[in-house]
């Protein structure tokens, strides 16, 4: 029983990290309708900025964290301007964007290989990871922290999308980008904003992953699991991305805890196969249909 609760908490913590990645990825998908494979690069960029800023600021996680989020957000904007904007202006075919994003993911990864080297790095112990005991259950303080911070960021995002003028514009553009432009929205500005948010959320997950595991240029590969979570939840749906991530994280941890940790990836990709076979739109995909 205790270990079940522990594994569920582990799973929610891992699921939170997936959720931060999947929500940003879904946000971009909902506007431009392509899978941005460079998303993992934003995460790695966030991790490295945090790492270097910690050494510069004498391990001040607040300053380093803030600079990491902003830096990763700006790197996401730069990626869009450099690689995607020239393509979107020439064609409506999203396949080209998809291919460009694969290219950019390699570019960003190798940028960090050159800048930081390929070796694994551990962040200095700025985020507490000691265990805490509640009754007979031992859980990591870090897992609780990850879960709470994720909730704070996702609530902030939800508030922004539901209550602000630009948030409304993003929701409108998710349905029809062209008509959002006809309403007087500067579409390029909106897309930059969306990439900034995606990069920012990816950086949060990048910092968490660097603490949980270590930091290395290929860390972005973990986004593949977050993509799966987004598909399971329903592509383009932010709520779906969160739900899919939490389900996937928990399933992965329960498998690792009770069956075999070698099977955890099988469960993740099994969930993808089952979703695509039986409910290709995912759990919450396309809930509202338009009457014609």
């Amino acid at each position: 029983m205790e270990s079940l609760i522990q594994q569920i908490i582990n799973g929610l913590s891992l699921g939170s990290v997936y959720a931060l990645i999947a929500v940003g990825y879904s946000l971009v998908y909902s506007i431009l309708l392509f899978s941005n494979f460079a998303h993992g690069g934003f995460l790695v960029t966030g991790g490295y900025i945090c790492y270097y800023m910690l050494t510069l600021t004498n391990n001040n996680i607040w300053v380093a964290g803030a600079l990491s989020l902003i830096g990763a957000g700006l790197s996401a904007i730069a990626t869009e301007r450099l690689a995607y904007k020239p393509i979107r202006e020439k064609t409506n075919l999203t396949l080209y964007l998809l291919i460009a994003s694969m290219g950019m993911s390699i570019v960003i990864e190798n940028f960090w290989v050159i800048m930081a080297g390929g070796r694994f790095r551990a962040l200095p112990p700025v985020i507490p990871t000691y265990p805490i005991r509640i009754g007979s259950i031992t859980i990591s303080f870090f897992d609780i922290l990850v879960f709470l911070i994720t909730i704070a960021f996702l609530t902030g995002l939800e508030f922004f999308l539901q209550r602000t003028r630009w948030g409304l514009a993003i929701r409108a553009a998710a349905y029809d980008l062209r008509v959002a432009g006809l309403m007087g929205v500067n579409v390029n500005k909106l897309i930059s904003l969306v990439f900034f948010l995606a990069g920012l959320l990816a950086a949060v997950s990048g910092i968490f992953l660097s603490v949980r595991y270590t930091l290395y240029p290929q860390l972005g590969f973990i986004t593949i699991k977050a993509f799966v979570a987004a598909v399971v939840g329903g592509l383009g749906s932010l709520r779906g991305a969160v739900i899919g991530s939490l389900i996937l994280g928990t399933a992965e941890m329960l498998t690792a805890g009770f069956i075999s940790s070698q099977l955890r990836d099988v469960v993740v990709f099994g969930a993808l196969v089952v979703t695509l076979l039986f409910k290709p739109t995912g759990l919450l995909g396309k809930a509202i249909s338009e009457k014609v």
């Binding site: 514009a169 349905y175 309403m183 249909s289």
Partner: peptide
């Protein structure tokens, strides 16, 4: 915008 309410659609019209 089918995913927005009538009110939100009208607010979008007033965006600029």
């Amino acid at each position: 915008f089918a995913n927005l309410t009538v009110y939100e659609n009208l607010l979008m019209g007033a965006f600029p």
